[in-house]
Simulated scan of single mutants.
Amino acid sequence: MGWGSHLAEGLRPVVDLVYPPRCPLCGSALATQGGLCPDCWSELEVPGDPSCSTCQRPMGSAQAMKADQCYACLADPPEHSGIVAATVYNDASRRLILNFKHGGRIALAPLLARLIAARIDELSGEPALLVPVPLHRWRLWQRGYNQAALLARELAKTGKGELEVDALVRRKRTPSLGGLGREERERALAGAIEVRARSVARVAKRDIILVDDVLTSGATSSACTVALLNAGAKSVHIACFARVIDGSGMGKARPETETPEAITAPGAT
C-alpha cells in the first residue's frame, strides 16, 4: 500500500464523520463509502446468458452456445470485436448514470468502473489500451468533465489496461441522434471523430477497449471504432456501464450514451 493509500485510510474516519456513507440511489445509510445498499444492488440487472457473443443481446434459444452470434451480427458483422456491459439499462442504472453524468457525482466513477472491470476478460498479448469516447470541446466545457474518461481512468487503476485518455478527438459538434435512421446517423457523424496525430503510434497494432457510460444505437461507438481501426488498431472492444437492450423495460432504444433527460441537448454524443 502506497503513501497515498495510507493517507486515504487514515482520513476515512474523518470523511465518514463529515459525509456519512449513503447509498447514492436511495440515501440509505451504508457501512462504507462507494457502494449501494442491498435493495439497490438487487435492482441492477446484469446481462445474462445465452447472449450474442459479439453484441451481448439476449439469444432467443436456450440452446445457444457461448460462441453463437445473433442474426443481426451474422447478417451485418460489426466493426468492433465485442461488447462488454456491466448492467442492462433499467431504472436503477439510469439513475446512477444521471447522477454521474448530469448530476456532477463524479465520485461514482470508481463504483461504476469496478462493475465494468468485473465483466472484462483478459485479452491475449500486451495490455489493452483504454480509450474513452470523446466529447466535443464545447460539451466538455459545459459539463466540466468527460464521464467516459473518468471511467477509463478508474479501469486503468484496476489493471484492465493502459490509459490513453485523449487518443480520440471529436472535431465537430453533432446534433442529437434521437429519431435519426442509420444512414442519417452515419452522415451526422461523418468526419466527426478522429485519432489524434500524436496517438496514432500508440494505437497502431494494439487491442483497444473503447470506454463509455451508456451504449444504445452504436452510432458513436461505431464511428470511434472505425477511426481506431483506420489508425491501425488490432481490435476494438467496447466496454460500458449500461447497455440498452430491446425489451429491457425502458421503451424504445435511446440515442447512444444519452439518458432520457439529455437527448435534446445540442452536441449530444
Rank of each mutant, 00 (worst) to 15 (best):
A118N: 04
Q56C: 10
D166I: 02
S199M: 14
P77D: 10
K66W: 12
G179M: 14
R137M: 13
G191I: 11
P13G: 11
A204S: 14
R243E: 00
I209M: 10
G34N: 04
E45V: 15
Y71M: 08
E9V: 05
A75G: 02
G191T: 09
G103D: 06
R119I: 11
S51Q: 03
I83P: 00
C73L: 01
R182Y: 04
G159E: 07
A67M: 12
W141R: 15
K252C: 01
L215N: 01
S51M: 00
G179K: 15
S42N: 07
T257S: 06
H102Q: 15
E186S: 09
M65F: 06
T32W: 05
P50T: 15
I209W: 06
L112V: 07
N146Y: 13
A190E: 10
D39F: 03
G60T: 08
R139N: 14
D246N: 11
D16C: 11
L98Q: 14
V88Y: 00
I245S: 09
E184V: 03
E183M: 12
P47H: 07
G191W: 08
S222L: 05
D39V: 13
T54M: 05
T216I: 06
K252M: 10
D166L: 07
G249Y: 00
V211H: 00
I208D: 05
V165Y: 01
L30C: 06
L112C: 04
E154A: 14
C26E: 11
